[in-house]
Measured scan of single mutants.
Amino acid sequence: EPELVFKVRVRTKDGRELEIEVSAEDLEKLLEALPDIEEVEIEEVEP
């Protein structure tokens, strides 16, 4: 069974934007590691 992958769009407080694809596990780590995120948009990517 393929692992869930999420497309994550992040905007930081200083206005930088970042778009990455991460696994569910990595997404959890990412959110814990970035306390200064202003906006996060997450969508599931079809395998």
Rank of each mutant, 00 (worst) to 15 (best):
E1N: 13
E1W: 11
E1F: 12
E1D: 11
E1V: 12
E1K: 15
E1R: 15
E1Q: 14
E1A: 11
P2M: 09
P2E: 06
P2T: 08
P2C: 13
P2L: 09
P2N: 08
P2V: 10
E3G: 11
E3Q: 13
E3M: 13
E3D: 09
E3R: 14
E3H: 12
E3W: 09
E3N: 13
E3P: 14
E3F: 11
E3Y: 12
E3K: 14
L4R: 15
L4D: 02
L4Y: 07
L4F: 07
L4K: 15
L4G: 05
L4Q: 09
L4E: 04
L4M: 09
V5P: 02
V5H: 08
V5N: 07
V5Q: 05
V5T: 10
V5I: 10
V5K: 13
V5L: 12
V5W: 14
V5S: 08
V5R: 15
V5F: 13
V5D: 01
F6I: 05
F6H: 02
F6N: 01
F6D: 00
F6Y: 12
F6S: 01
F6A: 01
F6P: 00
K7M: 06
K7T: 04
K7W: 06
K7H: 07
K7P: 00
K7I: 12
K7E: 01
V8Q: 00
V8A: 01
V8S: 00
V8I: 09
V8G: 00
V8N: 00
V8T: 00
V8W: 01
V8M: 02
V8D: 00
R9W: 06
R9Q: 02
R9E: 01
R9G: 00
R9T: 07
R9I: 08
R9A: 02
R9L: 07
R9D: 01
V10T: 01
V10D: 00
V10A: 03
V10Q: 00
V10I: 13
V10N: 00
V10S: 00
V10G: 02
V10F: 13
R11F: 07
R11E: 02
R11M: 04
R11T: 09
R11D: 02
R11K: 10
R11C: 07
R11H: 06
R11N: 03
R11P: 03
R11V: 10
T12P: 00
T12I: 04
T12D: 04
T12Y: 15
T12L: 15
T12C: 07
T12A: 04
T12W: 15
T12N: 03
T12H: 06
T12M: 14
T12E: 01
T12S: 03
K13Q: 05
K13F: 04
K13Y: 03
K13W: 05
K13V: 04
K13M: 05
K13H: 06
K13S: 07
D14Y: 04
D14I: 02
D14G: 04
D14R: 02
D14W: 04
D14E: 04
D14L: 04
D14A: 04
D14V: 01
D14F: 03
G15C: 01
G15Y: 01
G15H: 02
G15W: 01
G15S: 01
G15I: 00
G15T: 01
G15V: 00
G15F: 01
G15P: 00
G15N: 03
R16W: 10
R16P: 01
R16Y: 06
R16M: 07
R16T: 08
R16I: 07
R16E: 05
R16D: 04
R16F: 06
R16H: 07
R16S: 05
E17G: 03
E17W: 15
E17A: 05
E17V: 15
E17M: 13
E17H: 12
E17N: 10
E17L: 15
L18T: 05
L18A: 03
L18I: 14
L18C: 11
L18F: 15
L18E: 03
L18H: 06
L18V: 07
E19P: 01
E19S: 09
E19W: 15
E19C: 15
E19F: 15
E19H: 12
E19L: 13
E19G: 02
E19R: 10
E19Y: 14
I20P: 00
I20D: 00
I20Q: 02
I20Y: 15
I20W: 14
I20F: 15
I20K: 02
I20T: 02
I20R: 02
E21L: 15
E21Y: 15
E21A: 06
E21T: 14
E21F: 15
E21Q: 11
E21I: 15
E21N: 07
E21R: 11
E21K: 09
E21W: 15
V22Y: 02
V22H: 00
V22A: 05
V22T: 02
V22C: 08
V22S: 02
V22K: 00
V22G: 03
V22N: 00
V22Q: 00
S23I: 05
S23V: 04
S23H: 07
S23G: 08
S23K: 11
S23P: 06
S23F: 06
S23D: 03
S23Y: 08
A24D: 01
A24V: 06
A24N: 03
A24W: 14
A24E: 05
A24H: 06
A24L: 11
A24P: 05
A24T: 05
A24Y: 09
A24Q: 07
A24I: 08
E25P: 08
E25N: 12
E25R: 14
E25G: 11
E25M: 12
E25W: 11
E25Q: 10
E25F: 10
D26P: 00
D26W: 07
D26K: 06
D26M: 08
D26S: 05
D26E: 10
D26F: 08
D26R: 06
L27T: 00
L27P: 00
L27I: 06
L27G: 01
L27R: 01
L27V: 04
L27W: 04
L27Y: 05
E28T: 09
E28D: 09
E28I: 13
E28G: 09
E28H: 11
E28F: 10
E28Q: 14
E28K: 12
E28M: 13
E28V: 11
K29T: 06
K29M: 07
K29G: 05
K29Q: 06
K29E: 04
K29F: 07
K29A: 11
K29R: 09
K29N: 05
K29Y: 06
K29D: 04
K29P: 02
L30G: 01
L30N: 01
L30K: 00
L30C: 05
L30S: 01
L30D: 00
L30I: 07
L31Q: 02
L31V: 02
L31I: 06
L31M: 06
L31K: 04
L31E: 01
L31N: 01
L31P: 02
L31C: 09
E32Q: 12
E32H: 09
E32M: 11
E32I: 08
E32D: 08
E32C: 13
A33T: 11
A33K: 07
A33I: 08
A33N: 12
A33Q: 11
A33V: 08
A33S: 14
A33M: 13
A33E: 09
A33R: 09
A33H: 08
A33G: 11
A33L: 10
A33D: 07
L34D: 04
L34S: 06
L34Y: 12
L34W: 13
L34I: 13
L34P: 01
L34E: 03
L34R: 04
L34Q: 03
P35Y: 14
P35L: 14
P35A: 15
P35E: 14
P35K: 14
P35Q: 14
P35M: 15
P35T: 14
D36R: 04
D36G: 06
D36V: 03
D36K: 03
D36L: 04
D36C: 10
D36N: 08
D36A: 04
D36Q: 07
D36P: 05
D36E: 08
D36M: 05
I37C: 12
I37L: 08
I37Q: 03
I37S: 07
I37E: 04
I37P: 05
I37W: 14
I37G: 07
I37K: 06
I37V: 12
I37M: 06
I37R: 05
I37N: 06
E38M: 12
E38P: 03
E38W: 15
E38R: 05
E38G: 08
E38D: 11
E38V: 13
E38S: 10
E38F: 13
E38Q: 08
E38K: 05
E39H: 13
E39T: 13
E39P: 03
E39G: 10
E39N: 10
E39I: 15
E39Q: 11
E39F: 15
E39D: 10
E39K: 12
E39W: 15
V40R: 03
V40E: 03
V40L: 12
V40K: 02
V40F: 11
V40S: 03
V40W: 13
V40Q: 02
V40M: 11
E41H: 13
E41L: 13
E41G: 04
E41V: 13
E41F: 14
E41I: 13
E41S: 12
E41T: 14
E41D: 08
I42Y: 06
I42W: 10
I42C: 07
I42M: 05
I42L: 05
I42T: 03
I42D: 02
I42S: 03
I42P: 02
I42A: 03
E43V: 14
E43F: 15
E43G: 07
E43L: 15
E43H: 10
E43A: 09
E43K: 11
E44C: 12
E44H: 10
E44Y: 11
E44P: 12
E44S: 11
E44V: 14
V45I: 11
V45N: 07
V45K: 08
V45H: 05
V45P: 04
E46D: 09
E46N: 11
E46Q: 14
E46C: 15
E46S: 13
E46I: 14
E46G: 11
E46T: 12
E46A: 11
E46R: 14
P47E: 08
P47N: 09
P47I: 11
P47M: 11
P47T: 12
P47V: 10
P47S: 10
P47A: 09
